[in-house]
């Protein structure tokens, strides 16, 4: 029995249409009294359908599929951000999700303060963030800017800071939406090295990517998702080949 795992059982995830249909109290009241023109009702978006999947320690799983197939939804469901309608997702191990990195900064606060907030958001204690803060600052190469408010940062600096924080605070299960590349040419080399290190140290990796070559290189297993269902599951190279074939043939369910 391995210590780290992700167990998905009969997972169903749908974006409820109510969120698009009635957005204001006014509309809700009007609807109740049947006044105003009836709006066209939208339907639930069924992103993941009856999915069962086991991911075990040592596996680096690539998730591939066309846009809107449910890849990112699956990733966010594993992270616990999107709730399931039914079924279950059980995880063991500390999850580190790497998506929407540049979001969630306090723009009035300094870079140093933001490192603390982000660390705490990710479930670290103030002490453990303080231990890592010098490493984060050094890696982000922000120099004296670290004490400036974030709003004074260039886009590149912000990405570097986000990248540095997110890769310094480690976890057992790494969830990635696309391989991250950040900053200018010089930083990208560093960033790539850091990513490799991260990938080598994580117990489980789940990577969503359109970069098939990267999936083949990094992952030892892949699943191909189409309209919320697993179409193929197996060795990364086999699944990538199957996906390429179906794309070429134009057969998409």
């Amino acid at each position: 029995m391995s210590n780290y795992y992700i167990r998905i059982r009969n997972a169903e995830l749908a974006y409820p249409a109510t969120t698009y249909n009635a957005l204001t109290l006014k509309e809700e009241v009007f609807k109740f009294f049947r006044i105003g023109k009836p709006t066209k009702l939208l339907y639930d978006i069924h992103a993941i359908k009856n999915m069962t999947l086991d991911i075990n320690e040592g596996e680096r799983l690539g998730i591939i599929g066309r846009n809107g197939a449910g890849k990112s939804s699956l990733l966010k469901a594993i992270a616990g951000i999107y709730p399931l309608q039914s079924g279950s997702i059980e995880t063991s191990g500390k999850i580190r999700s790497m998506f929407e990195l540049s979001l969630g900064f306090e723009f009035e606060a300094s870079g140093r303060e933001n490192i603390l907030y982000r660390g705490l958001l990710l479930g670290e204690s103030p002490e453990s963030v303080r231990e890592k803060i010098d490493e984060i600052i050094a890696f982000a190469e922000l120099g004296e800017f670290i004490d400036y408010p974030i709003k004074a940062y260039s886009a590149g600096m912000l990405v570097r800071l986000a990248f540095s924080i997110s890769t310094t605070i480690r976890g057992d299960i790494l969830l990635m939406d696309e391989i991250l590349a950040a900053g200018d040419a010089g930083f990208q080399v560093k960033a790539q090295k850091r990513m490799e290190e991260l990938i080598n140290n994580a117990k489980i990796i789940v990577l969503v990517s359109h970069d098939l070559a990267a999936v083949e290189k990094i992952c030892n297993r892949a699943i191909y998702i189409s309209s919320g269902e697993i179409v193929a599951d197996g060795k990364a190279s086999d699944v990538v080949r199957e996906y390429r074939n179906s794309m070429n043939a134009g057969v998409v369910k």
Binding site: G80, I81, S97, F99, E100, F105, L121, L122
Partner: peptide, 9 residues
């Protein structure tokens, strides 16, 4: 929003 979408608290 940005926090809520990144981590489940």
């Amino acid at each position: 929003e940005a926090y809520i979408k990144q981590y489940k608290h």
